[in-house]
Simulated assay, not measured.
Amino acid sequence: MTGKDVPGLQEAASVIPAGTKINVTFLGNEDLEMRVAASKAVKDLGFVPVPHISARRLKSQDQLEEFLGRLQEVGATEHVFSVGGDPAVPEGPYPDSLSVIRTGILQKYGVKEVSIAGYPEGHPDIKDDVLWRHLEDKSAALKEQGLDAVILTQFSFDTDPVMGWIKDVRSRGIDTEIRIGTPGPAGIKRLLGFARRFGIGANAMIVKKYGFSLTNLMGTAGPDRFVSDLSALLGKDEAAGPVKLHFYTFGGLRATSEWVAEYRAAQA
């Protein structure tokens, strides 16, 4: 959710299981008060806030500590997501999420678990060898500091690169829990727009496999086939280790939450 999504969260709260992790963004058009208020709302409604720390948007160590201090006041620092962020040029001393982790400041404010980013289909602006080196370095740094880790991935429409990437992660000796980014139900044009923005494969063959057609852009699509196929593939691969889902609520918090509830009921 973004800092503006508190009303949407309140509307969806009755459909979301208690204790669900809910990530709270750190966008350029949000301020400290919005981010803290959103994290507090998540906590107050019985869920687990996972506020983002956007390294390249931080102007100083003081800003980082002010943010963490305010989050700690509302009980929202145990879980955070340390990510590089969008600015091409860092606005302060932190060029990437690893530099934030290495400060040792997170533990000072009660952080126990840090999510880090994974990119099964690569990153449009970062070379693959750099991505892998950073993933290994962040995993090692968190282990050295005694912090729990979660790898939270960019969303995908295709299980093949996801499974191949999970295999590569495990081959590097990283046994951290992985949460696979999964688009919640949303308009097809909206999903494709996000895919283009983040460099996600979305050609005709892939989206047909996912369950929608490029000839019907006015419709909506959900991740039913993707989740079912991924579950089946993971069930055959004992080496995959712990894997869960992370939903991107492009179509809204309530729509995604209702889809999850309906899918679970159908599986049961």
Score class of each variant (00 low, 15 high):
Phe47Thr: 01
Gly28Tyr: 06
Val48His: 02
Val42Glu: 05
Arg35Val: 13
Val36Pro: 06
Gly28Cys: 02
Val50Gln: 10
Glu30Ile: 01
Thr25Arg: 00
Pro17Tyr: 08
Pro51Thr: 07
Ala37Glu: 12
Ile22Met: 01
Ile22Gly: 04
Asn29Met: 03
Val50Asn: 09
Asp44Trp: 12
Met34Gly: 12
Val50His: 02
Ser39Tyr: 01
His52Thr: 09
Arg35Lys: 15
Val36Ala: 01
Glu33Gln: 14
Thr25Lys: 00
Leu32Lys: 05
Ala37Asp: 12
Lys21Ser: 07
Pro51Asn: 09
Ala18Thr: 13
Pro17Gln: 10
Pro49Tyr: 07
Asn29Cys: 05
Ile53Glu: 13
Pro17Gly: 06
Phe26Val: 02
Phe26Met: 04
Lys40Arg: 15
Glu33Pro: 00
Val24Lys: 08
Lys43Asn: 07
Gly19Trp: 08
Met34Tyr: 01
Ile22His: 09
Pro49Ser: 04
Ala37Arg: 11
Ser54Arg: 11
Val42Met: 04
Ala18Met: 13
Asn23His: 15
Thr25Gly: 00
Lys43Asp: 07
Lys40Asp: 13
Ser54Ala: 15
Pro51His: 11
Phe26Tyr: 15
Leu45Met: 07
Lys40Leu: 04
Met34Asp: 11
Val50Asp: 06
Glu30Phe: 05
Val50Trp: 00
Leu27Arg: 12
Asn29Ala: 08
Pro49Asn: 06
Glu30Asp: 08
Lys21Asn: 04
Pro17Glu: 10
Ser54Ile: 08
Val42Leu: 08
Pro17Arg: 14
Asn29Trp: 13
Gly28Lys: 06
Ile53Pro: 14
Glu33Ala: 15
Val24Glu: 08
Val36Thr: 01
Asn23Pro: 00
Ile22Thr: 04
Ser39Thr: 05
Leu27Asp: 08
Ile22Gln: 04
Val50Arg: 12
Ala37Lys: 13
Lys43Trp: 06
Lys21Val: 09
Ala38Phe: 01
Ala41Tyr: 13
Pro49Met: 02
His52Ile: 06
Leu27Gln: 09
Thr25Asp: 11
Val42Trp: 02
Val42Cys: 07
Pro51Ala: 02
Met34Lys: 03
Ser39Gln: 03
Arg35Met: 15
Ser54Trp: 01
Leu27Thr: 03
Pro51Phe: 10
Val48Phe: 01
Ala18Cys: 05
Val24Pro: 09
Val36Trp: 02
Phe47His: 10
Ala38Ile: 08
Lys43Ala: 10
Leu27Pro: 00
Thr20Val: 09
Val42Ser: 06
Val42Tyr: 04
Thr20His: 09
Asn23Ser: 15
Ile22Asn: 00
Pro51Tyr: 03
Pro17Thr: 04
Lys43Leu: 00
Thr25Asn: 13
Gly28Pro: 12
Ala18Gly: 11
Asn23Glu: 15
Phe26Pro: 04
Ala41Arg: 11
Gly28Ser: 13
Thr20Ser: 15
Leu32Thr: 09
Pro17Cys: 09
Asn23Cys: 10
Ala38Lys: 03
Gly28Met: 00
Pro51Leu: 02
Lys43Met: 11
Lys40His: 12
Val24His: 07
Ser54Glu: 06
Leu27Val: 00
Ala38Met: 02
Glu33Asn: 13
Lys40Gly: 05
Pro49Trp: 02
Asn23Gly: 15
Leu27Gly: 00
Ile53Gly: 14
Leu45Ala: 05
